[in-house]
Design a protein around this nucleic acid. Structure first.
Ligand code: MN
Ligand code: MN
Ligand code: ZN
Ligand code: ZN
Lengths: 131, 131
DNA sequence: TCTCTTTTTAGACCGTATCTAAATTCATGA
DNA sequence: TCATGAATTTAGATACGGTCTAAAAAGAGA
């Protein structure tokens, strides 16, 4: 089920045209966009939309567990439709953020840290994307 | 050699009173402070110091390789006197950031990622600090 | 259709970070 | 010692991300 209207309804969120436009974009996005990037994109199909609605809706989608926020860029949060554990690679040249599947890396030792109750973790990698 | 004046001189940076106060604080800090937290602290001994000087000096220290910036908190960069590879644990309750030694964890698979030239990485862990 | 609730909106507001231009400090050498 | 110019500091302006407010608009239910 990938229809944004159905997804919103299933979460008990009224599928207004603004929310549908935002959900339609972010739920399929692979680019880890910021709120302002989402606003710019959604304005193409919904020109009167306001910044407040974009922030309100994104925060609502986070609350409903449909997207996550990630702290990977300086100065702004980015939104991620992948809610399950995964890692991130940041291209230092372009700033683009790529998803790395959870199974692609193995991390050991997190359970042995004395004094730290680790609930979740991710590896943040930086370098250069090879074409 | 842990004298901030000597450290600044060795890097070719004129050790003004403002810079010494900032370097003295951040080079020994274990708390991953933001620029404004550093400003607040340094104002105690250097009350006339300006925000611009704190930012200028911190950026200079980063340029000289004496401290690093880390993107771990929403809305602000934090500064870290540990310039070598290490990991970070974030207490979700308090927001405090703890250093995890590089040797405490083992990460495998980073060299096998097709299409990604990994130059460096760190594990970002979240959970609850056990006293 | 009427009414009440939910949603959207513009713009104010706040925090972080940078920039600008003037003032100050400092090194240097006459 | 003093004059000069370069480096540094400063207050305040500017820019941008994000939240809040209060009023307008839209929608659901009677
Ligand atoms: Mn803005
Ligand atoms: Mn900002
Ligand atoms: Zn992701
Ligand atoms: Zn650290």
């Amino acid at each position: 089920m990938t229809d944004p209207v159905a997804i919103l309804l299933r979460c008990g969120v009224r599928p207004t045209s603004q929310r549908v436009a935002i959900a339609d974009y972010i739920l399929g996005a692979r680019s880890h966009p910021s709120a302002d990037e989402i606003l710019a994109h959604v304005k193409k199909t919904c020109p009167a939309i306001s910044r407040a609605t974009v922030y309100n809706t994104l925060n609502l989608l986070v609350e409903k567990g449909l997207v996550t926020t990630q702290i990977l860029r300086e100065g702004t949060v980015v939104f991620d439709p992948i809610v399950d554990n995964h890692h991130h690679f940041i291209d230092e040249q372009s700033g683009r953020i790529y998803d790395i599947p959870w199974e692609a890396l193995r991390v050991s030792g997190t359970a042995d840290l004395k004094g730290f109750d680790v609930r979740r973790f991710q590896v943040v990698l930086r370098g250069r994307r090879r074409r």
